[in-house]
Every structure is written in C-alpha cells, then in structure tokens.
Design a protein around this nucleic acid. Structure first.
Length: 488
RNA sequence: GGCCUCAUCGUCUAACGGUUAGGACAUCAGGUUCUCAUCCUGGAAAUCGGGGUUCGAUUCCCCGUGGGGUCACCA
C-alpha cells in the first residue's frame, strides 16, 4: 500500500507544539512505511492570514529536521513548491474546489443557502433558549431552481451547504476503534463560503483525495467533524482513508494547551535554546511510548518503533520540568564541537571573546545549563569580575590570614607557569593540587579562596575549570585583586 | 446542555487476565565535592467508585463519577 500522510497547518504565524507533534507523527508513520509526507498550507480563512507565516513555518520545520516530500519550499529566497500534486496552498486551488462543489450540487448532495448571518445568529439563540441542538433549519432547501438562479444572478450573497442524509455514520479510528454518530447530530455544514473560499471540511477532503493521502493523522479536536468528511468521501465516491486522532496536549490544568498558560510556539522554544532533538524527543513521548525503560530516543529510533496502535488515547500534560531535564541531557551528551556550533548565538555580551576561550567556557559551564540561553547569564563573570565582599574569600573553616597566605603563594607559583600549562585543564589542575599536597593543606583552605577570587561568586564552576577558561593573564589579575582586598 | 471521547504515582508512561503494579521527571534523604551544578545510591508516591464475567482482574463488560473535545461562512 502506498502510504501518504500530511500536515496541514493553518498560517497563524508560528508552529504550535501540538502541531509539531502532529507533524512528527505523520512524518514518523510515513518514514516507517516508506511513504510520502506532504505539507499543505490551509489558508482559506482570509481574515486570519499572517504575513510571512508560510516562510516561518518552512524554516521551523527545517530546523527541527522534519523533511517533507511535497509542499511549499523556499528556493533562492522565494516561495515555491515541490511535488507532483500541487498547488500545496489552498488559496491557489479555488477552481478545483468549485468544480467539486458543482458536482455535489448537481447530484443533490449540497444546496445553496442565502440566509444572512443575522438570521443564523438569531436562529441559534432561539434554539439555545429552547434547549434544542443548534442546527441550520434548512430554510433554503425549499427554494426552487428558478429563484436560486435569479438570486445568484442578482448578486445575492450565498454559501453552499452539505445536505446531511438520514441515518448514522460509522467510521474506524486507528487509535480509538469504531465510532458511531447519528447523522441527526450533524449540521448542514457550509462547504463554500460567501467569499468563494471553501471551508476546511470541503478543502481537506478534496485535497487529501487529490494528493493521494491514505492516512489522516491529526488532533483529537477533529474527531467530531469526521462524519462530515465521511459523507463527503461517500458523496464524491472517493476511497476512504484511514483516520487516526491524536490525544490532545494539555496545560497543567488539563485544558487544551494554550498560549495563555506558557510557551506553545516551537519558535520560542528554539529561541530559548531548547535543542531541536529535545523538542522532537519530548513531544514524541507525549502520547507514545517506544517501549523500554528509556527516555532518550533518536529520530531514527522513533521511526523504527512508531506504531499508530500504540499511541495513547488520553491527553498528556506538557511538563516543562521534564522538558528542561531532557534538554540538559542532550546538552551534556552532545559532542563539544557540535554543542559549540549550536551555542554560538547564545554568548551574549561575551560574543567578542576569542573562539578558543568561548569553547572552554562552554565546556566548563555546560553542566549548569538547562537551556542554551542560560549561557548569556553564565558568561558574564568571564567577561568582567563581579564586585564581591572581601569576606567571601574566606572559607568557612579558615580565616582571612590563611586565605591571603595561599593566594599569595599560588599567585607567585602560577605566574611562573607557562601559557601552555594553562591551556590544559589537567595540567593546571596538577599544579594546584601539587601545591596542596606538598603543603599538606586541606582542599577547602586553598580551593575556596581561589575559586571566589576567580569568579567573584559564592557559587560557580570549580577553580581548575576557571583557571583554564580564564587563562593565565586574567586569572593572575583576579588573584591580585583578591590579595589587595585581603591586605586592606 | 446534546453528542463524541478519555481515566495507572503530582506529571509523562510500562504492565496485550496471574508482577512485591516497573521506569522517567518532579520531590525527599544520603553519597561524591572547596561552593553550585553534574553524577551515584536510596525513600515516599498510583490502578476514580460500584457492580458483574472469571479460579484470578490495572487489564474484559455495564452503570456511575470526573476530565477533555466539539457543537461557526475558524482551522
């Protein structure tokens, strides 16, 4: 069987993490079965269009590594597309929808409706008051052909509605099993809007069929509109695709994940320095478990183990704490050179430091990073020594006199050490440790004051790391400063 | 409210009728350590309730309860 999955985002200007997971599952399923993965832009709501949204979407999908076989692309800075089944932007397919709606009209599966929005609103509120289901009352179904033609020719605003047949609609969901809904529950959905654009329901069915989509994997919020789609497939005589509705991603309060309660835009996570690998890994595990007591999976492993049948049915809370933990895991596991490339934009005010030093700083600080953006703050003390109280230089088990003694001794000792030794973390550590051993001092007596002298902070990376990252000149300068403070 | 749907630690989840109900995050307690972080060890923590079916139910069925989704010329 030829597997084709698709990801139809609406151009809202950013990629929602829920959409990311939908895209990912579609991608995983297609890749696992050697099928195609299509991206299609659903921009039929002209009032909610956002400038540059498609470009942004393409860029984000590329950043997280979700490659698609067909869809809009940017070549030479301009928007174009790849694939044989285009256009992949719905606003460019209006003629197609028109011919299909015409077919529906001709066979009596749809009808024209001239009702004003005011009348519909009034109708709805009356139904609500009477505690009846809110449905269109089919007033325009009674219109005869002559009147319809006449009103259309007069330029009267109108839409086209689906004529929902009697009976019930049963469909199979790959994740939830069989679902049955009485057709009486279903409204005569508008298929073609007054502005000539199709609604989602019409466009998605026509496009999915024309583009050869075999598997429709999307969020659970769509489940109640499946019957409408099934009716359209039947009316058109299209073969039925497989449906799979994914559980929702939730806010901590269990409602549908929304912007209101924190970040939801993939772009925002990326900008903060969450790694694409983390995002993919994390979001994949929200509703799916590859089996095995592990948390970290590569995209390849996810592809191998992905099964629609093992996707969970219940919604999953988006837990930022666990996301943070996972990002730390990825940061620490990454090759230093690779991590440095990723971290480059996050050096903030220390951007001007030499490359080699920035690499050392990253190496020293990476255990303390949750997101790469944390680096901007951590890097400050390497640039300029923070002001600190002289008191801080004194270890809890020693006194100022002792601190001064070691500071002076080490300062002298280190000034005689070559830059080469400073450039090797193990060597510079050896020098200091030798001093401690030979003098039979306690680690804290020496290391605490040196570390504070170098960092100016109560809490920081270790003194050996700091000597290495700061280099000889700056390290000695900072120690001299400490000596001055301790002497007065 | 109608319809649809879901239900294992606080959170993400494992256990396709038989387990001391497992793992991870978070949390707590130790350890490593000059501090922080990392790392390591350990603890506490769950099958929504009630009926069935069965020798035996987290698992299958029914009812209840609770949560969520959806009821647009938005997707």
């Amino acid at each position: 069987m030829n597997i084709v999955t698709r990801f139809p985002p609406s151009p809202t200007g950013f990629l929602h993490v829920g959409s990311l997971r939908t895209a990912l599952y579609n991608y995983l399923y297609a890749r696992k079965h050697g099928g195609k993965f299509i991206v299609r832009v659903e921009d039929t709501d002209r009032e909610r269009l956002v400038e540059g949204a498609v470009e942004s979407l393409i860029k984000t999908l590329a950043e997280v590594g979700l490659e698609y076989d067909e869809g809009p692309v940017i070549t030479a800075g301009a928007l174009s597309e790849k694939g044989e089944n285009g256009p992949y932007t719905q606003s460019l397919r209006l003629d197609i929808y028109k011919t299909y709606v015409q077919k529906l009209l001709e066979q009596g599966s749809a009808y024209y409706c001239f009702c004003s929005k005011e009348r519909l609103t009034e109708l709805r509120s009356q139904q609500q008051l009477a505690k009846l289901p809110t449905k269109y009352d089919r007033a325009c179904l009674k219109l005869d052909q002559d009147e319809i033609t006449q009103r259309i020719e007069a330029g009267e605003s109108h839409v086209v509605r689906l004529l929902v047949p009697d009976g019930e609609t049963i469909f199979k969901d790959e994740i939830r099993g069989s679902i049955k809904i009485s057709n009486a529950e279903i409204d005569d959905q508008v298929l073609m809007k007054a502005d000539g654009y199709p609604t989602y329901h019409l466009a998605v069915v026509v496009d999915d069929h024309l583009m050869g989509v075999t598997h429709i994997i999307r969020g659970e919020e769509w489940i109640s509109s499946v019957p409408k789609h099934v009716m359209l497939y039947n009316a058109f005589g299209f073969p039925m695709p497989a449906f799979a509705h994914l559980p929702l991603i939730l806010n901590p309060d269990k409602s549908k994940l929304s912007k209101r309660q924190g970040d939801v835009a993939v772009e925002d996570f990326l900008a903060k320095g969450y790694l694409p690998e983390t995002l993919i890994n994390f979001v994949a595990l929200l509703g799916f478990n590859p089996s095995g007591d592990r948390e970290i999976y590569s995209i390849t492993e996810l592809i191998e183990s992905f099964e629609l049948s093992s996707v969970n049915k219940s919604g999953a809370v988006f837990d930022t704490e666990k996301l943070n933990w996972m990002n730390g895991q990825y940061i620490r596991a990454m090759e230093p050179a690779e991590l440095f490339e990723r971290a480059k934009p996050f050096f903030g005010s220390a951007q001007s430091l030499p490359e080699a030093q920035k690499q050392r700083i990253l190496e020293v600080e990476k255990d303390r990073l949750t997101i790469l953006k944390d680096l901007e703050e951590r890097v400050e003390m390497y640039l300029t020594l923070p002001e600190y109280e002289t008191e801080m230089l004194v270890w809890k088990k020693a006194d100022a006199q002792d601190a001064l003694l070691h500071m002076q001794a080490l300062s002298t000792l280190l000034s005689a050490v070559s830059d080469d030794v400073f450039a090797d973390r193990a060597l510079i550590e050896g020098v200091v440790k030798k001093y401690i051993e030979e003098g039979e001092y306690q680690n804290g007596n020496v290391l605490w004051p040196v570390r504070v002298a170098l960092s100016g902070q109560k809490q920081s990376a270790g003194p050996f790391d700091l000597l290495w990252a700061l280099g000889k000149e700056d390290s000695l300068k900072r120690m001299t400063r400490a000596i001055t403070k301790l002497s007065t």
